[in-house]
């Protein structure tokens, strides 16, 4: 096991316990864990199993998806500024959800909103396949992703623009900020299969990403099938990030920042970074989700707002360092 995981895994467990113990119901840590594990029929059990556990599980899953796909995307594009949103799937998923909110489809049944978002993500993947082609290069792929992001962003703005009532617009804006509040076990169950499929595809790309350290030509010479690797990374990211966006909205910067923070801990190796970055992403999102509840317990501070608030200055610092390294 990579040494850094010996720190990160206990950290994730600790943060998960803190998150489980946190909430307006005012249950102590011992009391909450007893209710969670032993069950029964009191209100504490309901709070733990229906409210707090899904929240912790989603933070774990989505944080890991963001960290893992960020590391895979950076490794594949050999660019430390790449992030999972680059292929346009999160933007398209958000648009699917926005459309569902606007049309009232989201109110029809419990999973209508995340299902609409997943449909948006699927459309983005089909567009990517059509635009970047089965044998298209990395540059075509990035450009197609940028085009899809731009299109989804424009359509989202259009919906907001034409929104007849300010409450619907407000609801849309709040949803897009990203949050893990009030999610249920059904959200976990919906996201889980796509998330696991995404993780499987991404973790299998480790060998190819290692070889890509030497560039595309040398990697092919080492026996790596680049077309297959490209689709492993793109479809893996699409499945994991599509599911994450569907249940939690858009959460930025985790996928960009976490691989950076941890790269030096795996001696720069892009294949090893995958698992480490997944655990690191889970830790960061759990911490951020604890922070939103501690900073403003009564104001429903959005998770995506917090990650961007912390992530953007970090990103600037990174650019600053890169500029100095080049000078």
């Amino acid at each position: 096991m990579t040494p850094v995981l010996r720190i990160l895994i206990p950290l994730v467990i600790l943060l998960a316990l803190v998150s489980l113990a946190l909430g307006p119901a005012g249950l102590g840590l011992g009391e909450s864990l007893r209710a969670l594990v032993l069950g029964g029929d009191g209100p504490a059990v309901l709070v733990m199993r229906e409210i707090r556990l899904p929240r912790v599980l989603l933070a774990l899953m989505i944080g890991a998806s963001l960290g893992l796909s960020g590391a895979a995307m950076q490794g594949f594009l050999r660019n430390p500024l790449a992030e999972p949103g680059i292929i346009g799937v999160s933007g398209a998923a958000a648009f699917g959800a926005v459309l569902a909110l606007q049309t009232g489809f989201a109110a029809l049944f419990a999973l209508a909103l995340p299902l609409a978002a997943l449909a948006g993500a699927l459309v983005a993947v089909l567009l990517l396949v059509a635009l970047a082609g089965p044998r298209g290069g990395s540059l075509t792929l990035i450009l197609a992703g940028i085009a899809i992001s731009a299109m989804a962003g424009a359509l989202t703005s259009l919906v907001l623009n034409l929104s007849p009532n300010p409450y619907a617009a407000g609801e849309i804006v709040f949803w897009m900020m990203g949050s893990l509040a009030d999610r249920s076990v059904t959200h976990v169950m919906l996201a889980l299969p796509f998330t696991l499929l995404g993780w499987l595809l991404l973790l299998r790309s480790a060998r190819g990403l290692e070889a890509l350290t030497l560039g595309e030509d040398a990697a092919e010479g080492l026996g790596i099938d680049l077309t297959r690797l490209r689709w492993q990374v793109v479809l893996g990211t699409a499945a994991a990030i599509g599911a994450a966006t569907a249940v939690a909205g858009v959460i930025g910067f985790v996928g960009l920042v976490v691989p950076h923070l941890l790269r030096a801990r795996v001696a720069g190796r892009p294949g090893r970074l995958l698992a480490v970055s997944a655990v690191g992403g889970a830790a960061m999102l759990l911490a951020a989700d604890i922070a939103v509840r501690l900073i403003a317990p009564d104001r429903d501070l959005k998770l995506g707002v917090l990650t961007a608030l912390i992530g953007a200055p970090f990103f600037l610092r990174l650019l600053w360092q890169m500029r100095r390294a080049r000078a």
């Binding site: 490794g75 560039g215 030509d217 040398a218 092919e220 010479g221 790269r263 720069g268």
Partner: peptide
């Protein structure tokens, strides 16, 4: 073994790890 003309080392890996590729 194929050694391309383009000399690319994308990530800050150690010489030992690079050779081990």
């Amino acid at each position: 073994a194929w050694l391309p003309q383009q000399r690319e080392i994308a990530w800050p890996v150690s010489v030992e790890d690079l050779v081990a590729l």
